[in-house]
Computed example of a mutant assay.
Amino acid sequence: MTLLNHMRGKIKPITTALFALLFIVSCSSPTLEDYQQTTPVFAFDSFFDGELIAYGIVFDRDGKMTRRFHVDLTAKWQGNQGTIKEWFTFDDGEKSTRIWSITKQSANLYEGTASDVIGIAQGRTQGAALHWQYDLVINVDGSDYEVGLDDWMYLLDEKRLFNKTDIIKFGIKVGEINLVIEKQN
């Protein structure tokens, strides 16, 4: 038996095992626990307090940029209750407003509502990260659609954070939003 013939019977199981391992690794998602030891520690209610500004880009499911926007934000807290007002201006001239009512449930747990949010948004912080999930009604070319938002915020320093949001419909990622938010005061 030649070495080639000997290896033929072993290549398929090795290839299958490598493919399965690659599939498992590529399907894993980050968890908040991955960021437990990261700094600076993200205190949502401290960062979102005062005047802020954000700059963002919307990508379609193929990764093509479809829109750019900026957002002026004002956030205020009284005890465990916060309000975040967002004024969006898109590169095509569209303008919209969202007003969040946020409740700090515990040291690392937040809930929020807004007029275009379906139900209650839930977010949790760990280290320098916040994972925020909610369903949202968006208007595309005059039609309303319900989508899920899987929102990750990463505190860069005391004045800046990076936000990456996957837009999900029927369990499939259909778009992405990336933005940077900066404190103005």
Rank of each mutant, 00 (worst) to 15 (best):
E33F: 03
I172R: 06
Y145C: 06
W152V: 06
T2Q: 06
D45V: 02
L136S: 07
T97E: 15
A17S: 02
V147I: 10
G93C: 05
L161F: 00
Q133T: 03
G93V: 06
L73P: 05
S143F: 10
L32F: 03
S28A: 10
G119I: 00
T113K: 07
G119W: 01
D157E: 08
V25L: 14
T125Q: 02
Y55T: 14
F23S: 12
F47L: 02
R68I: 11
W77P: 04
K64E: 15
T113D: 01
K95G: 15
D116H: 05
V41P: 10
D151H: 02
L52P: 09
P30I: 06
V140F: 12
I84E: 08
I84H: 05
F88T: 07
Y154R: 00
A43R: 13
T38F: 07
D60T: 05
K76W: 01
G93K: 08
V58E: 14
Y145H: 13
A75C: 11
I11D: 09
A107D: 09
Q184W: 02
Q184A: 02
N185T: 02
L73G: 10
D151W: 01
S29G: 11
M153E: 01
P40S: 12
G56A: 07
N185H: 04
I120G: 04
A129H: 01
L22K: 07
F170K: 15
G171P: 05
D49R: 09
T165K: 01
N80M: 09
T89L: 15
P40K: 10
K183H: 00
L52M: 11
N5S: 14
H6Y: 14
F170A: 14
D60N: 12
Q78N: 10
L4F: 12
L109Y: 01
K169I: 03
G9K: 13
G93I: 05
T16E: 08
R8Y: 04
D34S: 11
L179D: 05
I177K: 10
R61H: 12
I24L: 11
R8C: 05
V137M: 10
F44H: 08
F42K: 09
Q126D: 09
K164Y: 07
G79F: 07
T113L: 01
T125V: 04
V71W: 08
E158H: 11
R61E: 14
D157V: 03
L136R: 07
W87H: 14
L149G: 02
N5M: 13
E111C: 05
L4A: 13
I177M: 12
F59L: 10
A114Q: 04
M7S: 11
